[in-house]
């Protein structure tokens, strides 16, 4: 049986000593002879060689996803591919995409010999951390059938970016105020709270300080929400709702940003882009009136159309909720990165 890669999948784990890592795990029929690494030039522009999107509804615009990405290549010598050559959309806030594709290597001396080799091209949001002059990546190889090779990358860049930042999260509705009702049984107040819980989890892991208007099924008036947010002094605010329509087949998504506030517009654009990349949805833009006493970048996100039966059904899957929350998180972290770069 030839040595080949069967399977590759990304994950995010919190390990010992609060180590927060993005991992890429490969399953193979045998371990590679050698693993080589190099950073590639940061020109992930039009000629990435990426395939066009499979469908409008998912991972649309792979080239846009990897625009401005940092690129790293791991080459596994002596293995082939059984799995399909693939672009694996990761979008976990650190790693955007992993491209698995074959290369060819000419053996030493004899030009006619060639060993199989497989490239893993990793596209990242931010430069990966280094230890001295080496990339800080941990590679674990486990023999067996299947054998595994796991690449672990520290998510420190996200902690550096978000650590200490105060972020306001406002899940809409609550208590007697159910909001929009889905065709089966889900309510807007429940969906908004679940998305905010997942989002808060990610932000807390990143070291952000959270100002949350409700953490349970509670009646919270508009006045109380404003008071909580003002008292918390956040650097930015995200309000979470869902959208709906009288047409049961309509798929409507919205993202509103505070009028005449360029930072709000930027935050809104980054979240909208992240939702499009990962969820394949294009939220309609809208404007929000300024909130009195809260002069910070402020957006209202409606990433789910609850009256559309497929969206309601999809939301029951925990992984779908995590993906929604991850998209909003990605938008927030990119916004903070851009404003940090602008200030420096």
């Amino acid at each position: 049986m030839k040595k080949a890669i069967l399977n590759a999948w990304p994950s995010v784990v919190v390990g010992d000593r609060n180590q927060w890592q993005s991992k890429l795990t490969l399953e193979l029929t045998g371990l590679p002879e050698e693993i080589r690494f190099r950073a590639l030039p940061d020109n992930a522009g039009t000629n990435t060689g990426l395939k066009p999107a499979h469908a409008a509804g998912f991972a649309a615009g792979l080239s846009a996803l990897c625009k401005d990405a940092h690129r790293y290549r791991f080459t596994l010598q002596g293995v082939d591919l059984v799995m399909a050559e693939d672009d694996i959309v990761v979008a976990d806030g650190l790693i955007k995409l992993v491209r698995v594709h074959p290369g060819r290597h000419t053996g030493p001396g004899n030009m006619s010999e060639s060993l199989p080799q497989i490239h893993l091209d990793i596209f990242t949001e931010y430069p990966l951390p280094e230890q001295g002059d080496k990339l800080a990546v941990d590679i674990q190889q486990t023999p067996g059938l299947p054998a595994t090779v796991t690449f672990s990358f520290s998510r420190k860049p996200l902690r550096d970016l978000l650590g200490g930042v105060r972020i306001g999260i406002d899940p809409g509705h609550g208590g007697k105020d159910k909001g929009i009702q889905g065709p089966v049984d889900l309510t807007e107040k429940y969906v908004a709270l679940e998305i905010s819980r997942e989002l808060c989890n990610l932000l807390e892991l990143s070291g952000a300080h959270l100002v949350v208007t409700r953490t349970g099924d509670l009646d919270v008036t508009e006045k109380e929400r404003l008071h909580i947010l003002r008292a918390g002094n956040p650097a930015l605010c995200v309000e979470i709702h869902v959208s709906g329509s009288d047409n049961p087949l309509a798929q409507v998504y919205k993202l509103a940003a505070t009028q005449d506030c360029s930072d709000s517009q930027l935050l809104g654009r980054e979240i909208a882009l992240a939702l499009h990349e990962r969820m394949g949805i294009r939220p309609e833009s809208a404007v929000l009136p300024p909130r009195p006493g809260l002069e910070v970048p402020y957006v209202r996100v409606e990433p789910l159309c609850l009256t559309y039966f497929a969206d309601e059904a999809n939301f029951r899957a925990p992984l779908f909720r995590k993906r929604l929350a991850q998209s909003i998180y990605n938008g927030i972290s990119r916004y903070l990165h851009k404003t940090k770069v602008r200030q420096s």
Partner: peptide
Amino acid sequence: AILRIRTHLITEKDDPVDVIDKYTKAI
């Protein structure tokens, strides 16, 4: 041993016999 195999995105244009043959013949 259970070996899991990642495939291309399978659609109605694919055939089960072709898909299984393609991904298992080497292993």
